[in-house]
Design a protein around this nucleic acid. Sequence first.
DNA 1: CGCCTCACGTTGTACGTATAACTTAGAGGG
DNA 2: CCCTCTAAGTTATACGTACAACGTGAGGCG
Lengths: 344, 344
Amino acid sequence: MAGPQRETADPRPTSRDVARAAGVSQATVSLVLGDKWQGRVAERTAERVRAAARELGYRPNLAARNLRLGRTRTALLVVPALTNEFFARVHTGAARVAARHGFGVVLYPAPDVTAPARDPFDSARASLDGVLASSMASEALATIRGDELPLVMLDSDPAHSLGAATVNLDIADGMRQAAEHLLALGHRDLLHLAADVSSWTFDVRRDALTAAVAGTGATVRTARAALAVDDARTATEAALTAPGPRPTAVICDDDVLAAGACKAARRLGLHVPDDLSVTGFDDLTLATAVEPELTTVALPAERFGEQGMDTLIAVLGGRTPAPEPLPVDLIVRGSTAQSPAARR
Amino acid sequence: MAGPQRETADPRPTSRDVARAAGVSQATVSLVLGDKWQGRVAERTAERVRAAARELGYRPNLAARNLRLGRTRTALLVVPALTNEFFARVHTGAARVAARHGFGVVLYPAPDVTAPARDPFDSARASLDGVLASSMASEALATIRGDELPLVMLDSDPAHSLGAATVNLDIADGMRQAAEHLLALGHRDLLHLAADVSSWTFDVRRDALTAAVAGTGATVRTARAALAVDDARTATEAALTAPGPRPTAVICDDDVLAAGACKAARRLGLHVPDDLSVTGFDDLTLATAVEPELTTVALPAERFGEQGMDTLIAVLGGRTPAPEPLPVDLIVRGSTAQSPAARR
DNA sequence: CGCCTCACGTTGTACGTATAACTTAGAGGG
DNA sequence: CCCTCTAAGTTATACGTACAACGTGAGGCG
């Protein structure tokens, strides 16, 4: 029955179609559906418009709305890697708050945060209202700032924020808790298994650890590894077999590193936690999947993402909130115990 | 020196500004920058326009372009949960291909794929070119189909695809490989630790397992658990202490489940793999973090995401490719060994 | 009775882009 | 010398929305 197929297979109804169906003007439809009709449109008419919109399955064209309003209700989330469970959880939290405010979140995974590929970001930023950037190097940050886009920094150095709002986890306190836990268990020779990544969040861990052991007589050696189990295992093996007194505890920047450290211990015939204590960071799924379960610093990742997006939306609204760092908690599980020496 | 601050803090240059700077009309700017100027604009002029655009830092307004062109170069990726590393990797692959074609990817996490909350999806779909939906129930699928949006199904039942293109992993073959591996090791009493999730991808695992053991004389019992370590451990403990012959191997729908199974074994005083073999599925980071490392079916998750997006873009281009299922590989590690009986 | 106010709308326009349709100046052909 | 043709632009318009500015008829009031 139908004639030859038209090239327009998608005649989505517009506000004008709704207007025609309701017997009003397009402007009235816009007023009613935009909730700006108080005292401008009669309740009877408003209801008729709403009914027509429902009937036709009307959805406003966001491109047109964005063009008209000059904003997009879209925020960019920049993270090092979404495959890192921590950032996936940050995204979850951020997206939840965003949705609550009618915002969308587009992701920009920056494999190398020090030198982000400009192209995908360039094409995207023209349609963004704001940026939520996690763990970025200040160089990359500077290029973003040049765009004058509202920016909120997550877990980044306040000293290099260039005036952007920052939202932080109390990473330093987490590291302090982990260190004091090990010290209280009698450990005096610590190995810091550090992430081989240039990022403020890891600098904070280092400094907090240094501060925590200062004056206690304990010593800290450092090993570095990429955020992968294998690399962490190799690095730990090397560090534990190096000359000098063998560390009795490994304090790791991350749970993945801690898992690698545990594997290294097993390879060397050391028992965790009897011969070697290990602490992680983040409390990922990993932490309770390995044996023994990891003593680790639990970060409220989703809450963190939520607070980040809340802050960005506040900034867009002209306010400049400066939230307190979110508290973190050491969770003591099976991978830490009294040092062999303290047990006597 | 500057006067009082204006309310427009962001006068981003438009194509008209570029035109003025280059001494041409706005249309010419659009032609040059859109690469449609062959034989329409002199090379000298084109270069002048490009220079002006560079000078002003011009970026086209995507909202205006989208409105004009009626498409958004944005695809929606629907996944059950981004915190599942598998889906994070699928996203990575999909986003990579998308970027290559100038497409953006927006995520829609569907916590419950059987009854997706309509609201966030509703507001988003008006600005989408297509949908890439992973592991969705056919009900939810039907509601999407109603929108007439180009759709590609990932890892979903071809029989319920309602005509949408499907892209699949060869899950059945993976499960077959795992089952045959265990059978070859002499295991005759298997426990299938199934994901307590209603999804085609898990139905396929079940059916493939059933088919693989048919006629071999082996028996398969089934336990169900949510995709979490703790739940998997509990379910496995219950199944292993149930009356009847104790299974000598656990074949799991997922690595997280496998990690839970390993923990259950340890609790019951069983050694993996000597007393109990365990296989996983997905080959997540988890698989090599636990001890022993998991024998598991490796899925090319990123490649899968890439192929999904390639297919969606092909569909948007009017083609209807039907790619072969991607091959998967069993990776034998330390969590499987000969059955105690076969060892004699 | 004439004017004002108020409630309820409508008309018109702008956002920035892409492109169809048109103009114009030479070049070349008959 | 006029006519056509092409290169090299330009003018004008539409996409769908939000909202400022403008009617308009009815009732109130002096």
